[in-house]
Amino acid sequence: MLLTLLAIAAVAVVRLRDLFAVVMLAGIYSLITAAIFVVLDAADVAFTEAAVGAGIATVLMLATLALTGRWEAKPRHRPLLPLIVVTITGAALIWGTTDMPHFADPAAPIHQHVAPRYIEEGPKEVGVPNMVTAILASYRGYDTLGEVIVIFTAGVGVLSLLGLRRRRSSAADASPSTPPTTSEEPPR
């Protein structure tokens, strides 16, 4: 049922030309995904999905809309060839999932490689009671550091773009001959 809602939201996102509605529907999509994660018992992933997908991403997309414009241009190409390529790729991926182990199979390779060592030795080696925190902050410390750097870079990029725009429009406000712009709030 939730997956059906997810599919409806995805189709609506593709079909609509009003980008504001698309952003709203993308937020709804993230909320459905988060609900599915909760149903699948992955609460921390669901938190991340709700905070990033429904919260931050929606706000960032709306900020982008404020800079660009609200309506999507008409597509100039025929959708037939990309549709065929995507269908073939999707069919190949679905065919590939038939080789995967069953859901929650304890004999799956992912549960045999390093996971037992993390579970058994983790509390002794790291000393953090929460297993996920121990793996993320200690065993995969460099990985997490790289992710933080990526997110920091993206945030700095977005902030510099938005800040440039705001400074220019406030400069336009200051000069007397230009028409008034809408941004009258003080810079944050």
Partner: peptide, 27 residues
């Protein structure tokens, strides 16, 4: 508890959306 956190995220998100909509919706 998860539901409560969702409520907080939802509230903040809607406030941010409404604040930004003032600028976008006029186009």
């Amino acid at each position: 508890d998860i539901a409560l956190t969702y409520a907080l995220i939802n509230f903040i998100g809607i406030i941010a959306v409404l604040k930004l909509v003032e600028r976008v919706a006029g186009t």
